[in-house]
Write a protein that binds this DNA or RNA. Structure first.
Length: 792
DNA sequence: TTTCAAGCCGTTTTT
DNA sequence: CGGCTTGAAA
């Protein structure tokens, strides 16, 4: 097993690759090949949607290693999301048979976190510093503001939060922010106060991770030189999403010898509103003297009509680096456009159309409904539920954001770092232990008087409040003592029990799922320990050919998160919980129609895509169009992203009227529709609906209507047969119910949507189940009557 | 401490 | 319209 340590692994070509390098290269088109085999110089790759961007990235890394140009240790790959990092790592893992562990792959935040953990002293942070997520940050800000005398009407915590974050995104400390008026001045003052509080409590927010790491590299020359000489090749994915600070950080890290390979698409820049700066791409080109700007314009995803639509649309933007997608696939289907009278009609048309598609054999998960804003989902969900079509909505609460999980983590955080007032206030009286607001006010006063954390201030408390607080301290101390020698999962289990969290949620009538999530947290800790490689011997972590990593081994075992290996399991787990909030989607697994915002769809692809609500004011959104011209361009890029998600079929819809915020609004059809050549479109008329003049004038030619396929009689017969099929299916499934269902089983109900079985009773035709539906609460259902569908 | 009702707000969102 | 927060009352 052991390989002599003095032979550089990266020179042993035969061992390294599962697939011969030539095979990897031969399947690339000429644009991709050029990019992959570029000499050691800064490069900017303009990677269009569906152009094989990730493939170029991974093949380039593999190629560099194979050529002996760089050791895995000399590679740094930066992504924007954890998902992207994971995908890179997995795909690299399939190309290379050496461990990918030595390669630093991660998000900007993850890697900054790692550096700060390693050099916490140099960075001026306490060893066990905690990371505040967005909601932690907000509560920290609220707490800070309580101690200051300000006009609460004028200074909203949310606004201050945005102010602080956007300052940090631009790399600005309080003293560096431009002060042009009194209002601004106050905000800066509050920013400073917040900064002091964070430092005192030993916590950092997301922006701080980057900013502090930036400052660390900037002011610490030996460290900067160390990393500059280590990372010879730096890869940046989704470059158009980087903000000013990330760009500055990158420049520091690259130094004069590093080679940056930046991949991005200015046409898919849709996060300007949160600080992303597309200008970074042209800045990069200029400042790094990029010799090779390579455009990947060959698209492997969509049919011609779809790409033509996308190209035509995006050509209306003035600020572009410029590129045009092309494909070898045929034109494919025309893009279908539907105008509805109301949002309800739009939804019911959508559902009818989806039924047809499913009948034609399309799987549900190949169908996506995209919309500009989340409120639009409700009408469509309602229609889907009514039709008994399983669906999945992306977005919403993620695992580590759930209140019960955050509570449990707060206990762990307080055990780690007793200065963490955010964690303290969260749990000091949860579950309730007779510590009211009054006591906490007194405690906060004491804390500011003695300049210490609230936890430490308990020692100074006198009177009756101190009894309960004293008991709390005893409990935390006991926890610290007990878990000291426990494994991470055991510690988590101990804490959720002894804190009383489990007992509390068991008492609550709606607490079943929360108890489950707490147990799930223990499981998450086990997975974390296993995946991160804690408990293995040190040699397994260092860069040697790991005998256990063989081509036949499962991917999961090969994937590790390089971020956290230097931390204790607990610190690593808590970082992980803050930096990777968990899955953003509802229960996976089941074949379901996908609903999401256009933003959430970026990077995904579907055979069939519906883009709903193409109306002025909604898409493009009114708030974006009024503010700046670039706002409209970003909306257009958003539309471009939406269109390019579709592989084979694309539907666009809009309505004359829509219920929004409690009132009916009448919108014009989106300008984006007009920017797509009519020759690519096919207009569909509402079924059984008298065609108004308005409809005529706004949708174009009568000859464009698809009378054939969407004629009334045909659709109706389809509807009937679909309904019968669904009934049959459901009936069959419920007959199998006696044996089929068990507690904890996820189920789907035509009326109530998805839910989980939490109780069973009776048998045979008497059998009843209690189901907690995600959207409709708790229900008892007779299995003989209710058509429940098991979801695996 | 809990519960209920009035009030408020409403684009997109990862780390 | 509807979800969530906040404030008042029991």
């Amino acid at each position: 097993m052991p390989v002599p340590g003095n032979i550089p692994i990266y020179n042993r070509k035969l061992i390294i690759f599962d697939v011969a390098m030539s095979d990897l290269l031969i399947n690339l088109n000429s644009e991709q090949l050029t990019a992959v085999t570029l000499p050691d110089e800064p490069a900017l790759i303009l990677a269009g949607a569906g152009s094989g961007k990730t493939r170029v990235l991974t093949t380039r890394i593999a190629w560099l290693i194979e050529q002996g140009k760089v050791s895995p240790m000399g590679i740094l790959a930066l992504t924007f999301t954890n998902k992207a990092a994971k995908e890179l790592q997995i795909r690299l893992g399939t190309m290379l048979s050496i461990s990918t562990r030595a390669i630093w792959i991660g998000t900007f935040h993850g890697l900054c976190n790692r550096m700060l953990r390693t050099h916490f002293r140099d960075a001026g942070l306490p060893e066990g510093f905690q990371i505040l997520d967005k909601s932690d940050q907000l509560s920290a800000i609220k707490r800070m503001m309580k101690g200051v005398n300000i006009d609460e009407e004028k200074y909203l915590p949310k606004n201050l939060q945005n102010f602080i974050n956007s300052a940090k995104e631009q790399g600005l400390r309080p003293n560096e922010v431009d002060v042009n008026n009194a209002f601004n001045k106050k905000l800066v003052e509050l920013y400073l106060r917040y900064q002091d509080q964070c430092l005192r409590e030993g916590v950092v927010d997301f922006g701080e991770l980057l900013l502090r790491c930036f400052e660390l590299l900037k002011h610490n020359e030996p460290l900067r030189i160390h990393y500059q000489s280590r990372f010879r090749h730096i890869f940046v994915d989704e470059f158009q999403d980087t903000n000013k600070l990330q760009y500055a950080w990158l420049k520091l890290l690259v130094g004069s010898r590093g080679v940056v390979f930046a991949v991005g698409d200015d046409d898919q820049s849709i996060y300007g509103f949160r600080g992303a700066n597309v200008g970074n791409m042209s800045d990069f080109e200029r400042e790094f003297c990029v010799q090779h700007l390579i455009k990947l314009e060959k698209n492997y995803r969509s049919h011609g009509n779809i790409l033509d639509a996308a190209n035509a649309l995006i050509s209306n933007n003035a600020n572009r680096l410029g590129k045009n997608l092309r494909t070898d696939a045929g034109h494919g289907e025309p893009i279908r456009v539907f105008e509805a009278l109301t949002d309800l009609q739009e939804a019911s048309w959508l559902v009818d159309e989806i039924k047809l598609l499913i009948d034609q054999g399309l799987s549900r998960q190949e169908i996506a409904i995209l919309y500009r804003s989340n409120v639009q989902s409700r009408v469509m969900e309602h229609a889907l539920v009514g039709a008994g079509i399983p669906y999945r909505v992306y977005g919403g609460l993620r695992f580590f954001e759930r209140q019960e999980v955050k509570h449990a983590l707060a206990y762990l955080r307080l055990i780690q770092n007793q200065n963490d007032d955010t964690a303290f206030t969260r749990i000091v009286n949860f579950p309730t232990r007779g510590i009211g607001l009054r006591s906490l006010e007194l405690l906060a006063d004491a804390a500011s008087l003695y300049q210490c954390s609230m936890y430490a201030a308990i020692a100074y408390m006198k009177g009756k409040a101190s009894t309960n607080l004293g008991a709390f301290v005893k409990m935390i101390e006991k926890m610290c003592f007990e878990i000291e020698n426990m494994t991470l999962p055991d510690a988590v289990r101990y804490v959720i029990e002894s804190s009383g969290l489990i007992a509390h949620y068991q008492m609550e009538k709606e607490g079943h799922e929360r108890v489950e999530n707490l147990h799930e947290l223990v499981h998450a800790a086990m997975v974390f320990v296993a995946e991160e490689g804690y408990g293995r011997d040190e040699s397994a972590r260092s860069f040697v050919l790991d005998a256990r990593v063989t081509p036949g081994m499962s991917l999961v075992e090969r994937v590790t998160d390089a971020d956290d290996v230097d931390m204790t399991p607990m610190a690593g787990f808590l970082s992980h919980a803050s930096l990777e909030a968990g899955d953003n989607q509802a229960e996976a697994g089941q074949d379901a129609v996908q609903l999401m915002t256009v933003h959430a769809s970026k990077g995904l692809e579907f055979s069939t895509v519906f883009i709903a609500g193409l109306e002025e004011g909604l898409f493009p959104h009114e708030n974006s169009t009024s503010e700046s011209p670039d706002g409209l361009e970003e909306e257009r890029r958003l539309m471009y992203v939406a269109i390019t998600r579709a592989k084979a079929r694309l539907y666009l819809s809009f309505t004359q009227s829509r219920m929004l915020h409690g009132q009916t609004r009448f919108n014009l059809k989106s300008r984006f529709l007009k920017e797509i050549p009519e020759t690519l479109l096919k207009f569909i008329m509402p079924r059984g609906q008298a065609v108004s003049h308005r409809f005529f004038s706004s949708t174009g030619n009568r000859s464009d209507w698809d009378r054939d396929r969407f004629s009334r009689s045909k659709v109706l017969s389809h509807e009937v047969s679909t309904a019968m099929k669904i009934d049959q299916n459901l009936a069959e499934r419920s007959r199998a119910a006696d044996t089929g269902f068990k507690i904890g089983q996820s189920v789907f109900h035509a009326k109530f949507g998805q839910g989980k079985i939490i109780a069973l009773e009776g048998s045979g035709s008497e059998a009843r189940v209690q189901v907690r539906f995600y959207r409709h609460g708790m229900k008892w259902l007779a299995l003989a009557v209710a058509k429940l569908q098991a979801i695996d």
